[in-house]
Design a protein around this nucleic acid. Sequence first.
DNA 1: TATGAATGAGCCTTCATTCAT
DNA 2: AATGAATGAAGGCTCATTCAT
Lengths: 207, 207, 207, 207
Amino acid sequence: MEVVGGPGRPAEGRELRARGLETMHRLLVAGVTVFGRRGLHAARVDDIVKAAKTSHGTFYRYFASKEDLFWALTTDVADRLGDLTDSLGEIGPGPEGAAELRAWVARFREVYDQYGPVIQTWTEAEQDDTPEGRLGADVLSHFVARLAERIRAAGVTTIDPDVAAVALVAMIERLTYYAATRQVPADAEAVTDVLANAAQRSLFGPT
Amino acid sequence: MEVVGGPGRPAEGRELRARGLETMHRLLVAGVTVFGRRGLHAARVDDIVKAAKTSHGTFYRYFASKEDLFWALTTDVADRLGDLTDSLGEIGPGPEGAAELRAWVARFREVYDQYGPVIQTWTEAEQDDTPEGRLGADVLSHFVARLAERIRAAGVTTIDPDVAAVALVAMIERLTYYAATRQVPADAEAVTDVLANAAQRSLFGPT
Amino acid sequence: MEVVGGPGRPAEGRELRARGLETMHRLLVAGVTVFGRRGLHAARVDDIVKAAKTSHGTFYRYFASKEDLFWALTTDVADRLGDLTDSLGEIGPGPEGAAELRAWVARFREVYDQYGPVIQTWTEAEQDDTPEGRLGADVLSHFVARLAERIRAAGVTTIDPDVAAVALVAMIERLTYYAATRQVPADAEAVTDVLANAAQRSLFGPT
Amino acid sequence: MEVVGGPGRPAEGRELRARGLETMHRLLVAGVTVFGRRGLHAARVDDIVKAAKTSHGTFYRYFASKEDLFWALTTDVADRLGDLTDSLGEIGPGPEGAAELRAWVARFREVYDQYGPVIQTWTEAEQDDTPEGRLGADVLSHFVARLAERIRAAGVTTIDPDVAAVALVAMIERLTYYAATRQVPADAEAVTDVLANAAQRSLFGPT
DNA sequence: TATGAATGAGCCTTCATTCAT
DNA sequence: AATGAATGAAGGCTCATTCAT
């Protein structure tokens, strides 16, 4: 569960030296862990700070609030999922389409391995009605819309593409979650196979 | 979003007169609403009490704590889902199987209409490690196991029944959620159709 | 140092029973004391709460913040000073004018006995630029303007009425303060005499 | 608002090179500004450090604490006011006395122009009960006592010299403050005239 | 049975001060 | 001599829960 790239921006426009950068990175990683363990509301800044082996004062040097850290992480995920979304190529009933779908699901899982806990927390009831609170939902909407477009492009007519897209994303997200948290007795590959398979078959019938 | 039957048990074993029953019922209903709007942690007793048009003191006459109310609701849902689980008959590639599945999905949606917000909150990270906290997860596990059993009984071998069951439940739950919260532009019937359809095709190929 | 009338309004529009009213009153009185002892910024809610023999939670039932309590007190003083301002009758070189002025100074001292600490805190540097922060300054401005008007009406020309008014208010406020805090070895009557006397002589020459 | 002479003593007894002196001077000036803007308690070291265009670490090379800086400034003002106090010559009903008083008020204003914000902050409630905290009050007391002595020496009997002295100082300080902060629509000369005039007339009758 | 006032532990946030470079 | 990162004690505020009426 390592956070690799995430730029992350300091509260104001300060320039950060290597040390500061490292500290902020530790906080981001700790955020993923703690939000994943307790959820946004129940997570205490104290937990995050302890996980990052730093102090309260330091936390607020880099993030304006607990929520700010969460949004920073959300933005990171949004970027990753945005890239992922755009990377879905043509799908279809044939083996190439199946391979494409499978590769895509595999890449989704990679993002999930890093940011899963953040994504899960998006569903923590109704992140209020602030623009930031809706960010998670927006990312998912965009994600779904793109998939629907691909399904439509593939000429699927036996099923409503929009609804199907939601259903698929739901399935992928939840199952990946169960796999990541080991609530399902199957390894990553197997789960990816099942997902790609089920998706393919739901859309196009048996391969 | 009305809570109809809910057994409802007072904090201790007191006998309740009509008025008390009424008050408790209002609290249960308010609980569903408020937990759905804000999640377990962010929900304030004050919100619930206001929604139920009663007072703090009264709340604690009926429930030992905020969590107690939540568990009461969870138990209600558990009962409902337990019944639902057991009601799933034989499924298979034929039209009878498809009808069975569709009817089952439709019944699931009924429960979801009443208790959706509670079910969603089950996913709020890490309901602690108390037995009650795990109740939600347990209910879902049982639900999934039963479905896996039915899938296995139907002779499906092209796909791992356990994994497939998780995937289906995930899909059903999430999509019903989107439909219930109107995040998906399709009416209840359409969504039920898509779900039953996709499930059937994932498991048995095209109908 | 007793706060008598001050309506004081609860955070929202709650109706208050006798007990609540009494608690709020204790908080207002405690506020005067503590703000007077430590100033607005250095005063801790904890101090106020202890002085009022109540708890943190209770404090926030009645006031949204420390500043809110302070503004409530400021509003009270503003009312009192507003009344006082309007009550200044005709002044002039004769004995009636002198008597009027003396009575007015005496009434000022009464207000000061109750709310002095709040008035002093108004001068705590630049209460920011919020409307509330400026309230204190505004009250004083109005107070001064009214006095200037009376001076002008009395036909004083040897001295700029506006400047003279500021000077008088300054003198009255500070000296009353020193008297109230016993930093000056003279009793209330003596100080009132000196003030009325000095004012009268500054404006109209010796009596 | 420039701090010119200020002895300036480093935290310990270090010798300071030109650069260090410069830095310390910038901190003293920044202190006057910031304390004036926000008061002693609300002023943040961060504000001062930013205003002086230096860093936290540097601040503590020169001053042991925020209060230390404040006391340094207070000591400076004390010196200036001490000189001023001693410079008040004979006053009396005649034109020489009037001229003396006027010149003295003008000199007071000069000090106030430089250190006004510090003097104002002296009134911030209860500078604790430390010797340093009382320094401001002590300076004023001494100032008042000296003036009272001069009044007594001038043979004034119609008014209590001690009380009159306090009243005059209060008037001078506040009015100078209003003039310095432009809360009064009159220029420096005019205010000085009014003050000298009012003082003279209060003590000795019309000139 | 119901109400609303009171309590206080707990969490978020700030900021004076110290430390490492 | 200077910088900026780090620290942690304090203090504001919230909210679950209890109490008195």
